[in-house]
């Protein structure tokens, strides 16, 4: 589990509101801070603003009001050119994997290594890192496959490999288990825990499944056994991993696994109850 002992600030939202064409706010005065090594679980129903929040945090969507700070830089009005270099330090897994459908698995994973402005790797180094990243998600045998030949779960795994191949300081996962069967979903969650805990990566995960949040908040990856195990209560209490519950664009709850289990809010309870049943 990650620590919360005053690392560098990675991401900060200050009263951020996002409106599309002056309609209802997709995000409504959202504020939170994320420090190095911490994790956040964005929990909320479909349409609650999870994806918008993730996209806003890397400047793909600009806030209508409020300010966003990424790695200490105010990106609210930062020109696209400067944003590109900041984004190079962030890994992103898109909802459906977001793979380039005309590139092979190998080219997809190599994409950030070959194409980022400051990335200059020798071909052997690129290949080594691509294979290493794919071995991490146990897909090193699919190098020459096209995304269309992969199953939904495999696409997400390639997406995870691509998000982590540059060893980014911050990784964003957008609904990594949406539409997957429970077994594949657990595999994906194990990989996310593994990626977080072996490299101590700052992680934000959007999900509508409380089980996923529960795993990220109260489990950790054990590199010795290669499995996930329950984290000690003291570690959970320290608050390195917190839930951010979104409802119709508003942040209605922020707290640890222990807090969310004790929360009285009926909307939050709806999520928590489902697992206890």
């Amino acid at each position: 589990m990650s620590s919360a002992d005053g690392g560098q600030e990675v991401l900060r939202f200050e009263e951020v509101t996002v409106r599309f064409e002056d309609e209802v706010a997709a995000l409504n005065r959202v504020s939170f801070r994320l420090l190095e090594g911490e994790s956040r679980i964005l929990l909320g129903a479909a349409g609650s603003g999870k994806t918008v929040l993730l996209k806003t945090s890397i400047g793909l969507i600009r806030p209508s009001e409020g300010r966003v700070y990424l790695f200490g830089t105010d990106i609210t009005e930062l020109p696209e050119d400067d944003l590109i270099d900041l984004r190079a330090r962030v890994g992103v897994l898109f909802q459906e994997g977001g793979l380039f459908d005309s590139l092979t698995v190998e080219e997809n994973v190599a994409y950030p290594l070959l194409n980022q402005r400051h990335a200059r790797f020798a071909p052997e180094e690129v290949r080594r890192r691509v294979i290493e990243a794919l071995r991490f998600v146990e897909l090193e045998h699919t190098l020459d496959k096209l995304p269309s030949e992969l199953s939904g779960g495999m696409k997400r795994r390639v997406g995870i490999a691509r998000a982590n191949v540059t060893e980014p300081a911050l990784v964003l996962y957008d609904s990594p288990t949406a539409g997957l069967d429970p077994i594949t979903a657990t595999t994906i969650m194990t990989l996310i825990l593994k990626a977080r805990d072996t490299k101590n990566t700052t992680t934000v995960m959007a999900t509508h499944r409380y089980q996923d949040g529960y795993l990220l908040a109260s489990y950790r990856y054990n590199p010795v056994t290669g499995r996930i195990e329950r984290a000690p209560v003291e570690e959970i209490r320290r608050g390195g991993t917190k839930y951010l519950v979104l409802r119709e664009g508003r942040l209605v709850f922020e707290g640890t696994q222990l807090d969310i289990e004790a929360c009285d809010d009926p909307y939050v309870k709806k999520f928590v109850k489902r697992l206890q049943d």
Binding site: K55, I58, L60, E80, D81, I84, D85, R87, A88, R89, V90, V92, F94, G98, L99, F100, D101, Y111, P112, N115, Q116, R117, R162
Partner: peptide, 21 residues
């Protein structure tokens, strides 16, 4: 096609400029 399947956004998110690329 890349735009409607959000591959352009993916490109931007991965730290590359679609104009350049």
């Amino acid at each position: 096609s890349m735009k409607v399947t959000e591959q352009i956004d993916a490109m931007r998110a991965l730290g590359t400029d679609p104009i350049q690329k």
